Computed example of a mutant assay.
Amino acid sequence: MIDAHHHLWDLTAVHYPWLAAKGVLRFFGDPSPIQRNYLLPDFRAEASALGITGSVHIQVGAADPLAEAKWVQAVVDANRDWPMVQVVHCDLTAPDLAQQLDVFQALPSVRGVRQIVGRAPGEDAQSGTNALLDDPGFLEGLLLIGERGLSFDLQLIPELMEKTARVLGQAPRTNVALCHAGSPHDRSPEGLKAWCQQLRWLSDLPHVRCKLSGLGMFQHRWTVEDFRPIIETCLDQFGADRCMFGSNFPVDSLYSNYETLLRAHERLIPDSQRSQVFAETAARFYKL
C-alpha cells in the first residue's frame, strides 16, 4: 500500500514560513498543532501499522525549495527500507527553469513538480496564484517537464477547472495528478453538484489522475458519509486505475488520526478497486 500524498518537515533543517508564522489562520484551519517537526518515524508510526509500505512526499511551502528537496533526498538515502519518492516545488514560468530542473533531477527521488494554482477562494484572492493560468510561460513549463519525464501535481479549486483543462489539453505528454480531488470547498448539495460538473473537464483528459486526499481540509468534523459523494464521483469519472489514496498528513491530522482516515476510504472503495487505489495507480504514476 502506498500513501501518494503526505508531507514531512524538520523545522531545524528547512525554513517553512507558514510553519513559523504564529496565530495565522489558513484555509484549512488553525495550523498551530502541526507547527512542530513531523519526521519520517512519526509518519511511519501511524502509517506502517495499517499496511502502508511506501509513500510520495509532496513539497509543502519551503522558503528554499531546493533545500527542502535535498533534505527529503537525505531522508530517502538514510531510510532504504522505506520506498519514498518526492514531488518538488519549481516555478514553471521561471526563465531559468531548465537549469533548475537539471539540479532537481540530479536527486534520484524526484518524480515531479507541484506549483499550486489554487488553494481556496480567500487565499487565492490574496496570493494571486490563479494568474499562472494566463501566463504563457506556465504552459511552456508544463511542456518542458513532460519532455523530461516529470509529472505535475495540480492543486486548484473547482472554479478553475475548465480554464486549467484548456491549458493541460495542450500538454498531453505531461502526466498530471489532481491533488485533493480538486478541493471541493463548498460541501452543500449545490456546491458538490458544481464540483462534479467542473471535474469532468479534468477527468476527460486521459493524462490526468486523481488523488483521494485532503478531504478533511474543508470539512473538519467529517463522517464517512461526508466523503461518499466525493470518492464515488472520482471513481466514476476517473476509474480506479486513475485514482490513488493520499493521507495529506500531517495536515489532515488536524481533523482525525491516520487509522480513522484510512478506514473511511476503505469503506467507500469497493474491494475490487482497492489494489489500484491504494497501490497500483500510485506505483505506476510515480515509478515507485
Score class of each variant (00 low, 15 high):
Tyr258Gly: 11
Val224Asn: 03
His89Gly: 11
Ile230Arg: 05
Gly23Leu: 08
Pro95Tyr: 03
Val60Asn: 06
Ser256Gly: 15
Arg44Thr: 00
Ala21Tyr: 06
Ala94Glu: 10
Val176Trp: 00
Arg80His: 10
Phe238Ala: 07
Cys179Ala: 02
Glu162Val: 03
Phe285Gln: 07
Ser275Gln: 13
Trp71Cys: 02
Ser256Tyr: 13
Ser275Pro: 01
Met161Pro: 01
Ser213Arg: 13
Trp195Gly: 01
Asp226Ile: 11
Leu212Trp: 07
His89Trp: 15
Pro83Asn: 02
Pro184Ile: 03
Ile145Arg: 09
Cys210Glu: 13
Gly118Cys: 04
Phe227Ile: 09
Asp42Gln: 08
Trp71Thr: 00
Pro33Gln: 03
Ala282Tyr: 09
Gln126Ile: 10
Arg274Tyr: 13
Tyr258Glu: 09
Pro250Met: 03
Val88Thr: 14
Met244His: 04
Arg166Trp: 09
Phe285Ala: 10
Pro172His: 07
Ser272Trp: 12
Ile34Lys: 01
Asp102Cys: 06
Ala13Gln: 14
Asp236Phe: 15
Glu190Tyr: 03
Glu225Cys: 08
Leu156Trp: 07
Glu46Arg: 13
Ala45Gln: 13
Leu107Trp: 12
Ala47Arg: 06
His180Val: 00
Asp91Ala: 11
Gln198Val: 11
Ala62Cys: 05
Asn248Asp: 15
Ser272Leu: 07
Leu97Trp: 09
Leu192Cys: 04
Ile145Pro: 01
Val76Pro: 02
